[in-house]
Amino acid sequence: MSDVVLFGILWVILTILGEIGVSLWGHNMYYYMASTQAIEGNHAAIFLMIFLTPIFMFVVLMLFFVPFRFRAKDGDRKVKAATFKTNRTFISIWVTVSVCVNVLFFIHPTASAAEMMFQEANPANQQNTLIVDVVARQWQWYFSYPQYGVTNTVNANGFNDLYLPVGRKVEFVLRSYDPNHTYDPNLDVVHDLWIPAFGIKEDVIPGETRFMYVTPNVITSFEKNPMVRVQCAEVCGPGHPYMWAPVHVVSSSNFATWIAQQKKQNG
């Protein structure tokens, strides 16, 4: 019995320490967040961590407890091992807890967060959504703003550039083809639009149109943090590592200025 008590005490202590660790470190898991989706994801991760910590500590403690406590010293063969082959209580608790925890995880955060994602895609919730047409080709991102009549935005160097106003929902419309060589559909491969700071990514599939919704909530830019970039996350050939573009989240007035400037450039 004393084994159980000792184990229980150690387990409680470790779990408390672990939970303190989660509360201190958990919100850093995403490193840098610049959208409501990233914050949502981080919350979900923290929720999972809170519930997984006791389970993790239980197993890890057991893995350390056993060799220290139940170790057969050399020559010490007289002490017999226990002989039980089953323990109804332990098994019932184990099965119940693992079923309950998994069902809980499915309900929250899985289903609840997914519900939120569905809501964002719901056409009824598309007031004032900024539409950005994204074309992925080997190995470049083209961004266009159909609501403003601006196509293929580039910076002074001619490098593709993405500007987003802060606090406004963005609908990325994702397509994969080469706008300069439409005669050649064999060029198109699967790409993946990932903005690490926004905590979300979506594959861009040739021949299909996909949508991704995100709401940037911090004024930031690639220059401030390199996680604020568009990066291809699905291998797409030799240019894959180079397939990126800087992102700038700006105030709505700066965004309007930038759009006007792009319009002039577009001519």
Binding site: G41, A44, P109, M117, G199, K201
Partner: peptide, 10 residues
């Protein structure tokens, strides 16, 4: 978990 997966995937 899909919402975390969308960040951690790939």
């Amino acid at each position: 978990d899909p919402i975390i997966n969308l960040q951690a995937h790939d």
